[in-house]
Design a binder for these strands. Sequence first.
DNA 1: TTATCTGCAAATGGTTTGCAGCCGA
DNA 2: TCGGCTGCAAACCATTTGCAGATAA
Lengths: 138, 138
Amino acid sequence: MATQNQELRNAGLKVTLPRVKILQLLEAAEQDSHHLSAEDVYKSLLDSGEDVGLATVYRVLTQFESAGLVVRHNFEGGHSVFEMAKGDHHDHMVCLDSGQVLEFCDPTIEKRQHEIADEMGYEIVDHSLVLYVKPKEK
Amino acid sequence: MATQNQELRNAGLKVTLPRVKILQLLEAAEQDSHHLSAEDVYKSLLDSGEDVGLATVYRVLTQFESAGLVVRHNFEGGHSVFEMAKGDHHDHMVCLDSGQVLEFCDPTIEKRQHEIADEMGYEIVDHSLVLYVKPKEK
DNA sequence: TTATCTGCAAATGGTTTGCAGCCGA
DNA sequence: TCGGCTGCAAACCATTTGCAGATAA
C-alpha cells in the first residue's frame, strides 16, 4: 500500500523491499497485539521466502525506532521486542508461564510517577514498567 | 567480620576470600546508595590488589542473588547492577544526565499494580519500574 | 581428604559494524 | 549514474561455562 511507502519516505528512508516487508509484518502483528523480536521478524521473512539478513532486520528496526515508527522494549534477559508506535503510551505485563505479553495503562500510576519525580526535583523523560506475572492460582 | 561469614554460611556457601571481599564491597557501596555492576566490583577488587577473575565475580553475584543476599536489576542497554537486599522493596529513578540512581517506593503504585494484575486474572511474581529522568528545568 | 571453589580461556547469544556489491530515485 | 541499502561475515559486549588445579572444612 502507498500508505506504508509514504511512511518510509517521511522518515527519509528509501522504499526498499526489506523495509516494506518488515513494516507489513509489524502492522500485521499489531492485530494480534503481538510484540515481535528481531529474531521473530527475521524468521517470518525467511518463511515468506524473502532473502534478508538478520543484520538488515536490526538495522531497519533501529531506523524505524529513530524515525518514531516503532517502539523498542527491553525485557529481562537481554531480549528486545518491537511494536508499532500507536501514539498511546502503555505498560507491559509478561506472563512467565506462556511468555505472552499483555498491555495495560493506568492513569493512577502514570500520575503518581510524575508526582514522585517532581517531588525529587526531576521530570520524567521516559519510563519502563513491566509486571512479571503468572496465572492466578485456581 | 563474623557477621558476613555467617551470612555466607547461612547461604550454604563456603567462606572464601573472593566471596567475603565481594560482600564487603557491596555493603560498603550500600552507604553511598551506590548500585554496582559486575564490572565495578571486578575493577574494585583489582584495585585492591585482589586476584579474582571476572567470571568469579559473576558466579558469586549470581549465588548471592539465589541466596537472596543481593538483588539484581536490569536497566536499559543490557547492563545489570547489584545491591544488597535490604528487605524492603523499592523502584528506581535513573538520571540520564548524571547516571545517578535514586530509589523510591510508592504504596499507591504498588497497590495499583496488584489490582491490575488481579483484574486480568494474574498474580504478580515480580515487577520492574524504572523512571528515566532529567533535572527539572530552572 | 574431598567436595567445593577459583582462574583462565573459550563459548554463548543478542546485537552491531565493515565492506564490496546491489539497487532505488 | 550514484549514494543509500543490503547480505555476509567478522566484531562486540555482557555474561556463562568447561576444566584442571587450588582450597576450605
